[in-house]
Every structure is written in structure tokens, then in C-alpha cells.
Computed example of a mutant assay.
Amino acid sequence: MTLPVLIRRDDPDVQSWNDARRGVLTFRLLIDGGAGPTAGLCQGTARLDPRGYETAHHHDIAETAHVLSGRGRLRLGDKTFEVEAGDTVHIAPHTVHAWSANDAPLEVFWTFPADRFDDIAYHFENDT
């Protein structure tokens, strides 16, 4: 059974990726079965500093993402879109996608239908 829980803005630890394989960004796991009482839902935020990026990849499950602040680009399949605060995207399973920030930070709130972040497979395009 899951229980209600309040997660304060600064409670989750900031984690980071800083390598050519995954990209250059920081993120916080907000809802994650590994850190609290939840099941079937994993949520967090990602921050890409100016010129930061997340390398092209796909997942075996769907993802939704909502741009909280900033402007940037989202590669979605074979198309690239300019995105800004307020934009929301549904990323179907197996859809290659990649994020990049413009000259200002880009912050995105994301959701997966999974119990834990560690359960989400990342298949990076550069892993060939």
C-alpha cells in the first residue's frame, strides 16, 4: 500500500550526469519507490544549464515531460522542436528523443509509469 507524502522542494538530492554518453544535466527524483512510499509512478525534474544537453536515447515505456522554465530544443523522432515554459510532450515508448538548452537554463518536470527510476531502461543512441 502506498501512503500520501509531501516532498519539499529541496529535499531530494541533486544528482548529475556529466559525460558524452548521457549528457550534461542535473536532476532530482521527486517520486521514486526507492526513496519513499510509491508504486507505479516515478517523477522528477531535470535542469540543463545553458548549452546543457541530454543525449539522444529512448525508453521501453512512455514518458511525459513538461517544460517548467527556459527555452531549448527537443528532438522527437526525426523532428526537432523549439520548446519553452508551459510546453508538454508525450513521448511514446521506443521514441528517440534528446533535450538541449539554449543560452539560459532549461528545467523539465518528467513522469514515467514505473515504480523506481532505477527500473527505467535508457537506451542511448551512442551505445552502438
Rank of each mutant, 00 (worst) to 15 (best):
M1P: 10
M1H: 14
T2C: 07
T2M: 10
L3Q: 15
V5H: 14
V5I: 14
L6F: 09
I7P: 02
I7Y: 10
I7G: 02
R8Y: 13
R8I: 03
R9D: 14
D10V: 12
P12A: 08
D13Q: 15
V14W: 12
Q15C: 02
S16T: 10
W17T: 08
W17N: 12
D19K: 04
D19N: 14
D19C: 12
A20T: 10
A20V: 14
G23S: 12
V24G: 02
T26Q: 14
F27G: 01
L29I: 03
L30R: 06
A35G: 02
G40K: 04
C42D: 00
Q43C: 13
G44Y: 03
G44D: 06
G44W: 01
A46S: 11
R47D: 09
R47F: 02
R51S: 13
G52S: 04
G52V: 00
E54I: 09
A56T: 12
H58C: 10
H58Y: 11
D60W: 04
A62I: 04
A62L: 07
A62N: 02
E63Q: 15
T64Y: 09
L68S: 05
L68I: 15
G70I: 02
R73L: 13
L74C: 05
R75V: 10
R75G: 05
L76H: 10
G77P: 04
D78A: 10
T80V: 08
E82F: 09
V83F: 04
V83N: 03
E84I: 04
A85G: 15
A85M: 12
A85Q: 11
G86T: 03
D87V: 06
D87L: 11
T88V: 11
T88H: 13
T88Q: 14
V89E: 08
V89F: 08
H90A: 14
H90F: 15
H90E: 07
A92L: 13
A92F: 11
A92Y: 12
P93L: 05
H94Y: 15
T95H: 10
T95E: 12
H97V: 11
H97G: 08
A98P: 06
S100V: 03
S100I: 02
A101L: 01
N102L: 11
D103E: 13
L106K: 06
V108A: 02
F109V: 06
F109C: 05
W110I: 07
T111Y: 05
P113W: 00
P113K: 01
A114L: 00
R116F: 06
F117P: 00
D118M: 06
I120D: 01
A121H: 07
A121M: 01
A121E: 14
Y122C: 04
Y122M: 05
H123V: 07
H123A: 07
H123R: 11
D127R: 06
T128Y: 13
